[in-house]
Design a protein around this nucleic acid. Structure first.
Lengths: 256, 256
DNA sequence: CGTGCCAGGTGCCAT
DNA sequence: ATGGCACTTGGCACG
């Protein structure tokens, strides 16, 4: 990728540069003293300050303040970005239909603008998603309980989907809700909703919350509701999965 | 803010520049051909590709691919960022304790690095948060129902907090759950949990879901559960609030 | 398209 | 720190 940077001597120069590079669908990053106004699903306004603004080839606009992971303002995949000079300010208007949103960026100074055109795009993988945990249980149900068999994955039920639906060694129907992270009350409520859906129809089922951990209040709610839980070891599951995968560079080399 | 940009002729030059600017706690943005490895709460790995990397003065590290709002990888407020040259690659290791996480960035080319030091920091406001909706109802409960009085805000109850707790004209206790956006089933389940908490103690209360809209399935679940709802007009609430605020630049000028 | 639901969710504030 | 919850949540998969 070729990256080109200018230090604009005037806002007019900055505008011309931005207009040209937006047309070319370049990747644009600039430092500026500016303020942002947003109105759409919500409404917000930031005070004037030094920001880093990213405009991606797909039209996403992201405004970062000096702190934290989250951007101050943003607009995902805008339908149009207009640039203009108004009253001594460089104004960018990023519009988006559906939902109808507008983000206005007023720059009083633009310190530097960089842009580049990149041809290809990279891929990204996530490991140990809830999906993978589910599959691991399906291929080895005994990790939950001896004699358990899985009948259905993502079984549709009145108000949603049951992650795993099976039968235990004594023939009881078992409903399982999986959480990849420590489960809170919401997870218990969800499981309870599914179990109740059966109860209404006169069928008594066991409900098991499967998670690496439970919050204290979740455990309490679970006990009161007559539900069960099963703690799973994510690290172990992850390693089992790793073993099955093709050999690849691991992070162990770095951690030392 | 002063912004300085270099186009490094070697990875060693890039490393030296990064080390110096990290020490100065500058704001750093660079374009690079790289790949990221993460291990911590989850684990991920991205293929090699052109990326924009931001390192903020507070140590946050964000890696953006050419698409979408969300970064490909990140590390919020790292406790340390180490830079080194290893096997012909420029390697950045961003470490974080609690939770223990490591992000490794391997750059095969660095196209351009910009950095700047900004002295001050801006503030940010959000309008029409759930908090503000709640306050609006408190100051004018009749927008929900004639004769309603609010007794308590954020009333603690067995498994959480009731947004609004009040009494209707006939003396019945009313429990309200507020949603700023279209309410889904989860909102209904939450309200139901609160109402049931009273039912267990033998007290019958009315449960009202307050939201700008309801999903169809939420409405169904709400009806079945014997709960009520009240649609509120966010735009109207927002305008009422705006009227009370000090005069300021609005977005109407821009929308035309 | 809307609806549901996971996410390395993040951020804010409470205990 | 842990927990509870809103968020312009974003993102994906599915009807």
């Amino acid at each position: 990728m070729e990256v080109y940077t200018i230090v604009p001597s005037s806002l007019a120069e900055a505008r011309d540069f931005l207009v040209r590079e937006l047309e070319r669908r370049s990747w644009i990053v600039f430092f500026a003293l500016c303020r942002a106004l947003y109105e759409g699903r919500g409404a917000s306004e930031s005070t004037v300050g030094d920001r880093v603004v990213i405009i991606k080839p797909d039209g996403s606009l992201i405004i970062h303040s000096p702190k934290g992971f989250k951007p101050l303002n943003w607009q995902p995949e805008t339908s149009s970005i207009a640039v203009s000079l108004e009253g001594g300010l460089l104004v960018l208007r990023a519009l988006r239909r559906s939902p109808r949103e507008i983000l206005v960026l007023e720059c009083s100074s633009v310190y530097s603008i960089s842009c580049g055109v990149s041809p290809e795009e990279g891929q990204f993988w996530m490991y140990m998603s809830e999906h993978e945990i589910r599959d691991a249980i399906v291929s080895n149900p005994s990790m939950i309980e001896d004699g358990l068999t899985i009948i259905e994955v993502e079984r549709p039920v009145e108000p949603g989907f049951i992650d795993l639906y099976g039968r235990d060694s004594k023939g009881n129907i078992v409903v399982m809700e999986i959480k990849r992270v420590k489960a809170g009350e919401e997870a218990v409520r969800q499981l309870l909703t599914y179990v109740n859906a059966f109860k209404v129809r006169g069928v008594v089922v066991r409900g098991i919350l499967v998670a690496p951990a439970l919050t204290e209040s979740a455990l309490k709610l679970l006990m009161v509701s007559g539900l069960e839980y099963k703690i799973i070891d994510l690290k172990k599951l992850y390693q089992q999965l790793q073993a099955k995968r093709v050999k690849r560079t691991t992070l162990k080399d770095y951690i030392l």
